[in-house]
Design a protein around this nucleic acid. Structure first.
Lengths: 224, 224
DNA sequence: CTGTTATATGTAACATGTAACACGTAACAT
DNA sequence: ATGTTACGTGTTACATGTTACATATAACAG
């Protein structure tokens, strides 16, 4: 019988801050000083500072020495690199999980598709997003490489934040999304990696095409 | 005319600690407490603590709450994942840099080969290692994706530490290393990615075969 | 009006004190 | 002998005070 191990304040702050950024409760580039966050969360500056450092390493926060801490604010080029990176990670995860746990992968993928069906049927956009995330996480859950998995976790955080920020202007759920996921699911089941690569490429870069029209593009806010 | 911006204590401690770990001045799994490091470096515990957190995120240090901070101590399975990860990153970097800056890549590669020649001629093992690192870094320097580059930096740190730790038992420079680099250089120049993939695979997994014989394998020290 | 310097303010960097926890060991009961 | 408890030690987690830097603004000189 295991007793609940309370998580450290730092971890709690990290989780809460990440959630806040990903969900768009802070604007991209917004100033978030240690002091204010510490007061807002009712903790001292130390765990907040630790959390900001962690989030900086996962790319969600930029700390400019003596000047302040800010929510990250990627340029268009940054988002491009992010998509490229994510595509590499996901294709690798798909290759690995197909080779190592194809059955588990396919089961998880099918579950995600079913959740998408349900979400579409009930028109629940939030649930659809959740299912979408589960679809893509499936490969990483079964790839057997924690480094690849961790790398995706950080990339996903940034992408999700960008997506949230964009969808506040474009409230679109995306019409091509569902059929593409169906296609991908079939190709995964059939182990057809080449065809899958083509669809994944298209799928991942959709984010870019939306961003291209919406991001303050040229320089954005300055980085570290 | 730019004035030199002094680096923060935290950064200095990070650099020095990373160097110490990579160069094997600490044993894998060794206990390195904040207090002792702070005293040794002549700074307060704060920058040391910050540095340890950063190094934990890059995988070189494991902090076990209330129990202590330790140099990482990968199991055989961890090293396997690391090699797999590194192979993915380097192939991607090679693909990207070949597509985007083939000339720059080839120049850098040739420079590294030349440095290897010189090192072999003078029997300077340290210089050879340096040239080897430069060879592999070339692709990342020219790939145009900072995420891929950063990911390699962290992976390289861990690999270098493992290599150092192993070479203390096996003082081998590796006989197959040089001809393989020559092969890779030619294939890169010829943009023959398929052949390159095969040689890279062989090249990267050599580390594993050495590790397999030497690492305390089954469980190693426990991780976080 | 213009450019320079002084000053005030916000911020993270750093130092240090305190508390809580993990764990080994010895005292003790049985 | 054995299991349990109490306690000492080492360690990080967290709080808070202090310092140094970056920046905006105001005062000032020309």
């Amino acid at each position: 019988m295991r007793i609940r191990q309370p998580r450290s304040l730092t971890e709690l702050v990290v989780d809460r801050l990440r959630k806040a950024i990903v969900e768009g409760q802070f604007a991209l580039g917004e100033n978030i000083s240690e002091d204010k966050l510490a007061e807002a969360f009712g903790v001292s500056r130390t765990p907040v500072r630790d959390a900001l450092m962690q989030l900086q390493q996962s790319g969600l926060v930029v700390v400019r020495p003596k000047r302040g801490s800010f929510v990250f604010s990627p340029t268009l080029a940054d988002v491009e690199e992010l998509c490229e990176y994510r595509l590499m990670l996901e294709m690798q995860a798909l290759r690995l999980s197909t080779a190592r746990d194809h059955a588990g992968l396919v089961t998880a993928i099918r579950g995600a598709i079913a959740a998408m069906d349900a979400a579409l049927a009930s028109g629940d956009q939030y649930a659809y997003g959740h299912a979408d995330a589960a679809f893509h996480r499936a490969a990483f859950d079964h790839c057997g490489n924690r480094l690849v998995e961790n790398a995706y976790n950080t990339a996903e955080g940034q992408l999700a934040a960008v997506r949230t920020s964009l969808s506040e202007e474009y409230g679109r759920p995306g019409d091509a999304s569902y059929p593409e996921h169906l296609q991908m699911a079939e190709m995964i089941a059939a182990r057809d990696m080449d065809a899958l690569a083509a669809v994944m490429d298209e799928h991942v870069w959709r984010t870019m095409r939306v961003a291209r029209k919406s991001l303050p593009v040229p320089e954005g806010a300055r980085r570290a």
